[in-house]
Design a protein around this nucleic acid. Structure first.
Length: 275
DNA sequence: CAATGATCCTGTCCGC
DNA sequence: TGCGGACAGGATCATT
């Protein structure tokens, strides 16, 4: 389940892999995976990528033809670089939903078991119309205890649920929210509106720390996340509560369900009265 | 506007 | 061995 660090890892890999290459075409093998803006009235290929931008869990690849690719991996999407065979000889892989053909006999397979991932092709000036309302970028200067507190304190929902809302903070998912709340020693059931400034400061600090550490380690490979070279990330080896039986202090980790999603936390380390 | 629930989809795992 | 059901869960849409 790619969250911000996994998306950044993939995007970094793409930037390297596409260096000096030209995109020749985009193929779709599953109805709905590739969405082409209806107002696109010319063939945007061949085109060269000019910039690679991440916004929340969205990857934006801007091309020199004034067109952009918007890629979202959702839960099981993977991009796999392949330069092993002449393009014409490559069969469609299992669960391959789309393909980005490059020159130099390279291509990117878009593999997505559960078919929720999307690739949108649209004019660069039209990109914002394809993105939902996204909140603070946790690794940008706009992410401060002040801006975060302002948004969180306006919500009655539990802090765990509020942090998963992409219109509050963009890029967090279930794994990193559980992890950062443990590190900040905040009980996941605490109403966001009731968080003290001190608690918000800890949440902001631990969010930046856990995301930065995870990016440095190439993300978390919990189920099937892979880098584009198909290697696994390393951060799963550093998780403290997510899918764990005990926390680093040896306490029993509890699993509850909030807003339909599993929450892992330590009732001893994350007490509600921790100020 | 906020909060909730259903939906999309397939592989894996568990109990019987 | 196989079958049904729960679970995994990001984002979107409809509903309250």
């Amino acid at each position: 389940m790619p969250e911000l660090p996994e998306v950044q890892t993939v995007l970094n890999g793409l930037e390297k892999a596409l260096q000096g290459k030209t995109i020749l075409s985009l193929e779709c093998f599953y109805q709905g995976t590739v969405i082409i803006d209806p107002s696109l009235d010319f063939d945007p290929f061949p085109a060269r990528p000019v910039s690679f931008v991440r916004r929340g869990k969205y990857m934006l690849i801007h091309l020199d033809s004034g067109i952009s690719l918007i890629i979202h991996l959702r839960m099981t999407g993977k991009l796999v670089l392949d330069s092993t065979l002449p393009q014409a000889d490559r069969e469609i892989l299992k669960h391959e939903r789309a393909r980005i053909n490059l020159d130099q006999d390279c291509l990117l397979h878009f593999i997505d078991i559960r078919t929720f991932g999307k690739i949108v092709l649209c004019r660069t000036d039209n990109v914002p119309n394809y993105l939902p309302k996204l909140g603070l970028e946790p690794l940008s200067s706009e992410f401060t205890p002040q801006t975060l507190g302002q948004k969180l304190n306006a919500r009655k929902a539990p802090i765990k649920t509020a942090l998963l809302d992409q219109s509050i903070v963009a890029g967090l998912g279930n794994i990193y929210v559980c992890e950062l709340l443990y590190r900040a020693a905040i009980c996941p059931m605490t109403a966001a509106t009731e968080l003290s400034q001190k608690q918000v400061r800890r949440i902001a600090a631990e969010t930046v720390k856990v995301l930065t550490e995870a990016i440095a380690l190439g993300g978390t490979s919990i189920s099937d996340f892979r880098r584009i070279d198909d290697k696994t990330g390393e951060f799963q080896n550093y998780l403290k509560v997510y899918q764990k039986n005990t926390c680093p202090n040896g306490h029993k980790v509890k699993r509850i369900v909030q807003a339909g999603r599993a929450t892992f936390y330590c009732p001893l380390c994350q007490k509600q009265q921790n100020q």
